[in-house]
């Protein structure tokens, strides 16, 4: 995935994005990891923190993926992958599972995205292609379903255009729902004021990101600079 990176020191691999994001999850958090890229985060959760994973098909206390010899067809995650159960786990039906999500009981949810707007609008369920078969699953519920919603993605598409945009062109999953964006080039905070750069990867500069995204990015990389902006 990262073999074609020209400036390896200025960008993170997907695993490095996941590792960096994992470091921000506090001890005691209840967290949901979306299907795909976000599941990588579970590989890097700090061992000294107790973090409880929620899977929306009906479980808290989900353990790692199950390997042959331990596969139970009744025990799968939202991606329909066989998983394991940790001590202290609990099971519940879909009504309760999405109720705990919608009701704001989860601390953090991590999602992938096609596009995120500077104000935190999310597009991650459909590219809007006319011949595609639509499928939404829990995407719209997850987008509004945690106290903090984090997105992890590469900042640029394969074609080189920014996936952090002024306004999403793909169909929306949720409005103003993403709080923080972890990318291979920088970490951003998103709110009503727009996008603020919190942390840069390697020698990446805020101006480079402004050129890439075409956005007026606030510079929050240091308290002094944040005050000036």
């Amino acid at each position: 995935m990262s073999g074609d990176k020209a400036e390896p020191h200025n960008s993170w691999t997907r695993a490095e994005i996941a590792e960096r994001l994992a470091a921000d999850i506090p001890d005691g958090a209840y967290m949901n990891l979306g299907i795909g890229l976000p599941t990588l985060v579970s590989n890097y959760l700090p061992k000294d923190r107790e973090i409880i994973l929620h899977t929306e098909n009906g479980m808290l206390g989900m353990g790692p993926e199950a390997h042959p010899g331990h596969i139970d067809p009744d025990l799968i995650n939202a991606g329909k992958i066989p998983v394991t159960e940790l001590p202290g786990a609990s099971y519940f039906h879909h009504g309760d599972s999405f109720g705990m999500m919608r009701g704001g009981h989860l601390d953090v949810c991590v999602l992938g995205a096609f596009q995120v707007s500077q104000f935190g609008d999310l597009a991650n369920w459909s590219t809007g292609a006319p011949d595609s078969i639509p499928a939404v699953g829990g995407a719209m519920d997850l987008a509004i379903g945690a106290k903090s919603v984090y997105v992890m993605m590469e900042l640029a598409s394969k074609g080189g255009s920014s996936k952090l945009v002024e306004a999403c062109s793909y169909p929306l999953t949720g409005i103003r729902c993403v709080n923080r964006l972890y990318t291979d080039r920088a970490i951003f905070q998103l709110d009503a004021d727009g996008a603020t750069v919190l942390e840069l990867v390697g020698a990446t500069t805020v101006d480079e990101l402004r050129t890439l995204t075409g956005l007026t990015l606030h510079d929050g990389t240091s308290r002094t600079e944040r005050t000036l902006s």
């Binding site: 879909h94 009504g95 999500m101 919608r102 719209m140 519920d141 509004i144 379903g145 929306l172 949720g174």
Partner: peptide, 26 residues
Amino acid sequence: PQGNLAERIRAAGAGIGAFFTPTGFG
């Protein structure tokens, strides 16, 4: 949306006439 599907089913069983949900707004 999956949570709306679940809640619409739950509402039917619980005698709820309709409900307001934030999921899917906009």
